[in-house]
Design a binder for these strands. Structure first.
Lengths: 236, 236
DNA sequence: ATTGATTGCGATCACTGTTCGCAATCAAGT
DNA sequence: ACTTGATTGCGAACAGTGATCGCAATCAAT
């Protein structure tokens, strides 16, 4: 009977009057799942692992969720609640820049988040609140509604892409040095073939690159400018 | 003995003189995997399924691959060979724009590709050739090497993000209408709560949006301009 | 002809998401 | 007070996954 669409989590009531008091709650399950994902990665978030961590049987989770996908949906929306969406009198561009900065911070706190933001159009309450807030920032901008939606969508898309790039390069403190050495070794071997002169040249350049924070803000600012949000808009 | 780093596929020779003639080749395996992914999605690309499709036992694939991850790496690099990397006399910005357009086309041909481009820094021959070609386009641009790498990386990252957004919205011809109706129904229900006035307003706007192609080129062009590649560079 | 590396692969292991059926529980209806 | 019925927890099971092991078959080099 239960719908298999991962979207109706948001409509379904968590529990209805009759029956024994539930030992576990949807919130507890999601919290445990997020903790696992933060620590051991998204692949470690299995039904059995989550159940074990909250002291439940594996099958019990299916009294609160309809699928593993639904759990992911809940995870995404839950961390979406970490945004500070308070109102602001700043110009639209500054507001969106601030949202993007927060988004990057959240994705750094939860490294499993970034890829998920691109694939699924999350429609949970927190995600909708974020969307609403971003659109509110654009209320003074003269732009058709769908274009505003497009702009906001690309904002989070670019942020996600940037952070994924960041995370893929650092990838962690421990075993990654080894991995990177393998990589560099492979690359230098490729270079000795002489088939990649420009690549070799680009890597040879000094690594005096600016901080990732500045780079990120630059990328976002640049996108917003091109999207019709220059530094100063209208009369402010 | 075999290294578990999915990167050394590129160093390992496919076969060495002694032993029975292999019935299956790495290329055939990867081709089958790509065909499966194109038709039934990435999730359908299991070792057993690929093996069955080329008439092999499941365990046999591990004579040619060290892991499922390695197969994915090979898939990504193989479709990377679909780029036309011929030289060009156009200005840098036009060349990169052309590469981005090709990239989007490839990601549309292989809908499983876009997410993978963000997570892994593929270092196969085709991926390296692409990188080399993109850097060659930037050879006349005055910019430190690492910054050029950053630019190219963000170029494919933004393209991937854009295409993922596209694919998530269309998602297919058949059962998606139903899914979208569910979505819109959910959304309209959320709107009746009155908590999302701006969102409601944005969706109410006429959907006379420009074609995705134009939108895409606009986004890319805009990024390149901000990255230091205006319409005309230097003396051309 | 013998050696030894290499291939194909059936069987198996440790997992995964998910379903089923049953016992325990508790609110509501009589 | 007691029955009814929905609801929860969960052990067992199923189909599927990636990966490993050991063995027979094969073929180049000696």
């Amino acid at each position: 009977m239960a719908s298999h669409d991962p979207l109706d989590v948001w409509r379904r009531p968590e529990r209805s009057g009759v029956g024994p008091k539930p030992k576990h709650s949807r919130a507890a399950i999601v919290a445990a799942a997020i903790e696992i994902a933060d620590k051991d990665g998204m692949a470690a978030v299995s039904i059995r692992r989550v159940a074990a961590d909250i002291g439940a049987g594996a099958a019990s989770l299916y009294r609160h969720l309809n699928s593993h996908d639904e759990l992911v949906e809940l995870m995404v929306d839950t961390v979406g609640g970490e945004y500070d969406l308070g109102p602001s009198a700043e110009p639209p561009r500054a507001q969106l820049l601030n949202l993007a900065r927060q988004g990057r911070a959240i994705m750094h706190r939860h490294p499993w988040l970034a890829p998920l933001l691109l694939t699924r159009p999350s429609l949970g309450p927190n995600s909708l609140a974020y969307l609403e807030r971003a659109l509110a920032a654009l209320v003074t901008v003269d732009m058709p509604g769908p274009a505003k939606l497009q702009t906001v969508a690309m904002l989070t898309a670019i942020s996600s892409a940037f952070v994924q790039n960041e995370l893929a390069q650092s990838a962690g403190p421990g075993a990654i040095d080894h991995g990177n050495k393998e990589r560099l070794q492979h690359l230098s071997a490729a270079f000795q073939s002489g088939k990649y002169p420009h690549l070799a040249g680009a890597l040879a350049g000094h690594l005096e690159q600016q901080s990732p924070d500045e780079t990120f803000m630059g990328v976002i600012e640049n996108y917003l400018a091109g999207a019709g949000l220059p530094v100063s808009v209208g009369f402010d």
